[in-house]
Each structure stands twice: as C-alpha cells, then as structure tokens.
Nucleic acid binder design. Structure first.
Length: 271
DNA sequence: CAACGGACCTGCCTGC
DNA sequence: TGCAGGCAGGTCCGTT
C-alpha cells in the first residue's frame, strides 16, 4: 500500500478530525502488528490532547503533551475517521477514541504496520533517528545523491529505496523516477554521473508531487481517510506495464525481478 | 561497513 | 468449485 504520497494524503485527511481532540480511551483488538502494540498504550494516551499530526518518512506522528503516537501503515494499512460506535470490521485492529464521540480507526490486513508510543523527542526514536532526508525538503538534491553513491555497487534502484539515503521512495515511484531520468534500474549507484543524479532527484520530486497532487495513487487498498475509496490512479509510465509499449519510444517495456521486488524499465530509454 | 536473503502477514489473482 | 502457487505498495534483522 501506502507510499509517501498516500501517507501524506492520510495525514491531511485526519488532521481536521484529530488535532485538538482529547483521547477518551484506546481500543486494541489485535496487538500483533509489526511490533506488539504496547499494552500500556491506552494508559499513556488517555486524557491526552492531540496537538498536531506530522509526518516523517512514512510514519505519522500524533503529538501529545506527554509523548507521541507513532503510526506506520506498512503495506496494507489505512486510517479512517468513524463514529466510535461503528461496528469494527475484519482487520480493524485499533481505535483511538475521542471525547467527541468519533475515533481514529486503524485497519491493516497484513499487519505490517505499527502503533507505538514514545515519550521524549520522537525524531530520536530508534525507528526515526537514522532516516535520510525527506525527498521534498531542501537538503535533498542530485548533489546529495551523487555524494552518497560514491563507491556504492548496489543497484541504483535499491539505492534510492534505501531509507538511510532518502525516505519515502517506494517501489512504484522508484520505477517511475528511474524511467523519467533515463537510468537503468540495475546500474550500480556509483556508476551514475552527477548530471544524471540531478535528473533523478528532480524526477523523484516530480513523481511524488504529481501523486500528492492527485491525492495519492491507489492500486488496491488505499482509502481516503473519510472512508471514500481514493481511487486516484496516477499515470504510471512503466510500473506494471511489462510488454506494453514504452510511452516514449514504443518498444515493449521489460519486467524483471530485482531482489524480491518487481522492476519495470525500457531497455532503449534507460541506460 | 556493504550486500543479500529471510522474516513478518493476509488477500487476490492465475492456472490447473 | 477447490486448491496450490505466486505476487503485492515496507522495512527490519541476521548472516556472510
């Protein structure tokens, strides 16, 4: 599921319903997520007022006076706002219930997501401390990528999906950005020129901004936070289009397995 | 250190 | 219709 644009879309969707709200209680139906939901999460959160919702990489940070609720949606997670009395459906693992009578409900069929509590500065949390820059922030650039890639033999696609290098570039947008930049996904990261990294950084920003502008791309299970299906299919040039003609040169696109993930590219346009 | 494979899960689609 | 197999947008962790 969610790549960065979807997570940011979710953040924007829940903010008006969550910010300034006081937590009445927490209802955990299934604590076995990526990491166990802390047993004392309800104790920590009860009575807290959500002061704001931030995003770092694909983590959502719900700031409270006593600490921060960290939410990750994994591959299949989604959040929605519903009246607290709404019957839970399959895979609705947790509710953050507010005094006002509504709740923030987490659904996550594959349970790769996370619901964690941290006191202190959340940006120093183990999961967040070592993350690379946000791709849409000023400290991300082609020069930065070029510097980080010196001496690296890892494939460039793998490189840009490494959250220590840059966050928020998932499989779909990695494929799309490499196509836009004309770079072959299997090329060694250290064998890409500075000029091509400039193009790649711009391409990453372009695809993420375009997806964000459309409210997040959707393949299967992303829903807008108000519960309406958020089927804003982004125009994908290569992802999932093996055998279909390249949008530029019309030759058939190639689909391969790279690592454990699917890669798509045009052998003529990407070198 | 870097590179790689495995792990965590369920749902959906394909093909027999 | 049933069932096995493969695949799915993430990311951490252990082993070489």
């Amino acid at each position: 599921m969610p790549e960065l644009p979807e997570v940011e879309t979710t953040r924007r969707g829940i903010v008006p319903h969550v910010s300034g709200q006081r937590v009445a209680r927490v209802l955990v139906r299934e604590p076995r997520l990526r990491w166990p939901v802390p047993p004392d999460l309800g104790t920590a959160l009860a009575g807290q007022v959500i002061e704001g919702v931030e995003r770092r990489a694909k983590y959502l940070l719900l700031r409270c006076p006593a600490g921060t609720l960290l939410i990750h949606l994994g591959m299949s997670g989604s959040l929605r706002i519903v009246p607290a009395a709404t019957p839970a459906q399959r895979h609705d693992h947790a509710d953050i219930v507010f005094d006002a009578g509504h709740c923030l409900r987490l659904r996550d069929p594959r349970r790769f997501g996370a619901l964690l509590w941290t006191s202190g500065d959340p940006l120093h949390h183990l999961l967040l401390a070592d993350l690379g820059p946000e791709p849409l922030d000023d400290d991300f650039s082609g020069a930065y990528l070029y510097r980080q890639a010196r001496g690296r033999s890892v494939a460039v696609k793998h490189f840009i999906m490494d959250s220590h290098i840059v966050v928020g570039v998932g499989n779909i947008y990695a494929n799309e950005a490499l196509f836009l930049a004309g770079i072959h996904p299997l090329r060694a990261a250290g064998q890409v020129s500075r000029a091509r990294y400039e193009r790649l950084a711009a391409a990453i920003q372009h695809v993420l901004r375009a997806a964000l502008a459309q409210g997040g791309t959707t393949l299967r299970d992303f829903h807008a936070s108000d519960g309406r299906a958020g089927y804003f299919q982004l125009q994908l040039a290569v992802y999932g289009r093996a055998e279909q003609p390249c949008t530029v040169c019309k030759r058939p696109l190639i689909g391969i397995r790279q690592g454990q993930r699917s890669s798509y590219y045009c052998r003529a346009c990407q070198r």
